[in-house]
Simulated assay, not measured.
Amino acid sequence: MKKLLSIIVVLLAAAAATLYFSPTALLASTQSLERHLAGLSTQDIQVDEFNIRYYEGGPADAETILMLHGFGGNRDTWLRFSRELTARYHVIALDLPGFGESSKPDVSYDVASQVERLHGLIQALGIRKLHLIGNSMGGHIAALYSARHGDEVLSLALLNNSGVTTPTKSEMFQRIQRGEPNPLVVRKPEDFDVLMHFVFATPPAMPEPLKRHFAQQSMANREHYDRIFAQLRERYVPLEPELPKIQAPTLLLWGDQDRVLDVSSIEVMKPLLHKPSVVIMQNCGHVPMLERPAETAQHYQDFLDANRG
């Protein structure tokens, strides 16, 4: 028994040392475990000048769900959410061009450009029909794609999406209008905590070394993100004229505590859609698939089941 306790103590000490001295290694191990639990593997595909990295899993002959992350995010956004879906669906979660480990050439990453890149990717993957789901900026892209390439879209799910002028301005846009820094861009280490409290109603517990690691990663990309955010604003495509073109059943899912994009967006979008469904999650922020992945996935599965066929 003493020998077993000694081994456990050594292992815990080793884990603590790994976390402190190499958060990158710990993060890689954690992501590998999450991928395994979700039944996903990492893939790459070249589409025009972009090498696009993505996760893929689930039965190859099942219906495809394609997932699009938000501004500053990446494909890991969907890991725990995907865990609930890969038994029944062919799941693809992208690093959108310009984000994550996909190519980042010096081009525009406005929503309309991303829609056409997405169309090229879907054609390259040989997908004829799919379910689209997107969060924030990814929801804006998914909605515009569904309006412009609707014959490919079986259903659309928009989670706290951008793209509409809301009756109530969100805290983020109030800050930006006052000339304050964009809270989604990390410029100094302490900004990472600000970001976490801004996008989550209840931020997840995270060891300090991992916080520092994520802060450093985000700070390294701040100029790139500032440039993309400016492009999104300068080449903004409003969804109000586009939403009536969408024929697919559409889920509008929002966290009621979203400080990035106000929940009143639903009041604008619902009357413009042909087949809307609405879910408002209480005490939840801007990224419900991260904050409450199993619950969000259940809402999404209920939506898919209700609209099957």
Rank of each mutant, 00 (worst) to 15 (best):
D106G: 03
D95E: 05
L125S: 07
L125Q: 15
G100R: 03
E116D: 14
H69N: 13
L118V: 11
L85F: 14
L121N: 12
S102G: 11
P105G: 04
I65F: 01
G120Y: 07
Y89C: 08
I133K: 00
N135R: 06
S136E: 09
G58D: 02
R88K: 15
H119P: 06
P59E: 09
G70R: 06
D110P: 04
F81E: 01
S136K: 06
S82F: 05
W78G: 10
V111T: 15
I65G: 03
A60Q: 14
S108I: 07
M137G: 02
R75T: 03
H69S: 08
G98H: 10
G134R: 10
V91T: 12
G72P: 03
D95N: 04
V111W: 08
T64W: 00
W78M: 11
W78V: 07
A124T: 05
A62V: 11
H69W: 08
D76Y: 09
I127P: 07
A93D: 02
L66E: 02
Y109T: 09
H90P: 14
S103Y: 00
K104W: 02
F71H: 01
H131W: 09
N135W: 05
A124N: 04
G73I: 08
A112G: 01
P97V: 14
L79W: 10
G120N: 15
G120H: 14
H69T: 07
A62F: 05
Y89P: 13
T86M: 13
H131N: 13
M137H: 04
G72F: 00
G98Q: 11
L121M: 14
L121R: 13
Y109Q: 11
L68F: 08
S113F: 01
T86S: 12
F71T: 02
L79D: 07
E116R: 08
T64H: 04
S102E: 03
G134H: 09
D61V: 04
I133E: 05
Q114C: 08
I122N: 05
G72L: 01
D106Q: 13
G100P: 13
H131Y: 10
D110S: 14
D106E: 14
L118Y: 12
L130W: 08
P59G: 09
L85T: 12
A93E: 06
G58C: 07
P105D: 04
G72Y: 02
L118M: 07
L66P: 04
I65Y: 02
L96I: 12
V107Y: 11
L85H: 11
H119M: 02
S103C: 00
R83T: 08
V91F: 06
K104R: 15
L79T: 08
A60P: 02
D61A: 12
S113C: 01
W78S: 11
P97E: 13
G72D: 01
L132W: 05
I122L: 14
L94M: 14
H119I: 04
L96N: 09
A87V: 00
